[in-house]
């Protein structure tokens, strides 16, 4: 990818909703505002989502009747955040199914 192309690509992502997965297993969903060469990210209007803890999983599994259990991730509102690049394990961009190129 050359410089201009990369810049265009990053700019095209601005103000899109990103989902950032961090090393500690949390996910952050917010609007992409800024990035730099170290992949530090600034997200606006961010919500944090957390996987259920082991105990909660255990409790749910004990109560569940079937083989699989489904638990909602717990979330809270954080607002404007910076995610340092070193902690990012996965990034996703949200796209409308209807608008995706097939």
């Amino acid at each position: 990818m050359d410089k201009d192309e990369a810049h265009d690509y990053l700019s095209s992502l601005l103000n899109q909703n990103l989902r950032i997965h961090t090393t500690d297993g949390r996910m952050f969903r917010g609007t992409f505002k800024c990035t730099d060469p170290d992949m530090n990210l600034v997200l606006g209007n961010t919500h944090e989502y957390r996987q259920p803890s082991k105990e909660e999983l255990g409790a749910a599994a004990a109560n569940a009747s079937g083989d699989s259990v489904s638990l909602d991730m717990t979330s809270r509102y954080l607002g404007l955040i910076v995610v340092p690049g070193q902690y990012i394990v996965k990034m996703e961009v949200e796209q409308f199914l209807s608008q995706m190129k097939s």
Binding site: M1, A6, H7, Y9, L10, L13, R19, T35, D36, P37, D38, M39, G85, I88, V89, K90, M91, E92, V93, E94, Q95, F96, L97, S98, M100
Partner: peptide
């Protein structure tokens, strides 16, 4: 209606 597309590789290459 919303799909999350993995862009980790492309993004890190771009930055």
């Amino acid at each position: 209606g919303i799909v999350a597309v993995d862009i980790t590789a492309k993004f890190s290459e771009a930055v």
